[in-house]
Amino acid sequence: MSAIGDAILTLPVACCLRDHFPDAYIGWVIEKKSAPMVRGHQDIDSVIELERGWFTSPKAIRQARATLREHRFDISIDCQGNTKSALAGKLAGAKQRIGFAGKHAMELSRFFNNEKVTPVFHHVTDRSLELLTPLGIHHPNVRWNLPLDSEERRWAMSYRHSIRSSRVAILNPGGTWPSKLWEADRFASTARYLADRYGYHSVVVWGSFEERLMAEEIVELSNETATLAPDTSLTSLAALIETGDLFISGDTGPLHMAVALGTRTIGLYGATRPGDSGPYNQVALQLQYESGSRRHRRNADNRAMRAIGVEHVCAVIDEMHTDSIARAA
């Protein structure tokens, strides 16, 4: 409901429901920050946007209940598996409330959901799709259909054509946790390698002020092989990513945008596991893992990420391009 990446990773659930129940009314409950990732999706009839912290006061809970009840939902599917996501299904009045059993039923979710599924798979996308088994869906197709505005697509293509290079790599140095960050000088070295070896020009994207400072450092160290991306919204960022030939990032929302849009992706992992939230059917690199509780991993330094060297990323880049040459032959 709140994480951009998790919202994207769960989009195949809506797509699959539409495939199997073409006449169903499908709603998505989400917090406002992540709403652009599902708003306007072709398989979703209604996006119900709640304020952050909506579940922390009696008044806000009553307001959420009134909003959700208007939709008269029969079934809720709790893909997040925590208190607020399960509570949303309960407040909506859904009689069949499907959620996780076992370790993925976090906090109070097990008390709000009344039909439990023990997942076999680890990845968030596959695990979420398993929640559809009580509805008779056992072999789902995975598709995303990330909603993009045609005007933003036109802007992104115009920006792409302004770069005089046949290949564009998009580098995303940002991340929500310090422990997910790779070093600026390593991104810059990767940009130089991409330019020297394969003729890429790199575009460095950013969101927050801190991310912009890191992006500017990468550009400065890149020997003119990288450019700072313009300020973008979430959806215009997605449109820009769609125009790229390669996307390199830590585990964060834009990484999963790239996967959903079909851009070749290299994910860099240290504080999270690729088996759980890796770039779906794309490449993930992890040499060390920052073990411990979620709180510890969120607040740890980026030691595990620093175990990934530029040479490791460049080796993957070489493998990708060797494979492309082999397929072309």
Rank of each mutant, 00 (worst) to 15 (best):
C15P: 09
L17E: 02
L17A: 02
R18A: 01
R18V: 02
D19T: 10
H20P: 06
F21C: 04
P22E: 05
P22M: 06
D23P: 02
D23K: 11
A24T: 10
I26S: 04
V29G: 01
I30C: 13
E31T: 07
E31Y: 13
K32R: 15
K33N: 06
K33I: 14
K33L: 15
K33C: 05
S34C: 14
S34W: 10
P36Y: 03
M37R: 06
V38I: 15
V38D: 03
R39L: 12
R39H: 12
H41S: 11
D43T: 09
D45N: 14
D45G: 14
V47Q: 13
I48N: 11
E49S: 08
E51D: 14
E51V: 13
E51W: 08
R52K: 14
G53E: 06
W54Q: 06
F55S: 13
F55W: 05
T56V: 00
S57Q: 04
K59G: 00
A60H: 04
A64V: 02
R65A: 10
A66Y: 00
T67N: 05
R69Q: 13
E70N: 12
F73Y: 15
F73E: 04
I77N: 03
I77C: 04
I77E: 03
D78H: 05
D78K: 05
C79E: 08
C79Q: 09
S85V: 09
S85G: 09
A86C: 08
A86V: 07
L91S: 03
A92W: 09
G93A: 04
K95F: 00
K95S: 08
Q96D: 03
I98H: 05
G99C: 01
A101W: 06
H104C: 03
A105Q: 02
A105T: 04
A105G: 00
A105V: 07
M106E: 15
L108Y: 00
R110N: 01
F111T: 08
F112I: 04
N113E: 05
N113D: 12
N113K: 06
V120Y: 14
V120E: 15
F121N: 14
H123F: 14
T125C: 13
R127C: 13
L129W: 13
E130F: 06
L131K: 02
L132P: 04
T133M: 08
L135E: 02
L135M: 09
H139E: 10
H139W: 02
N141Y: 01
V142Y: 03
R143I: 07
W144M: 06
L146T: 08
P147Q: 01
L148R: 08
D149K: 15
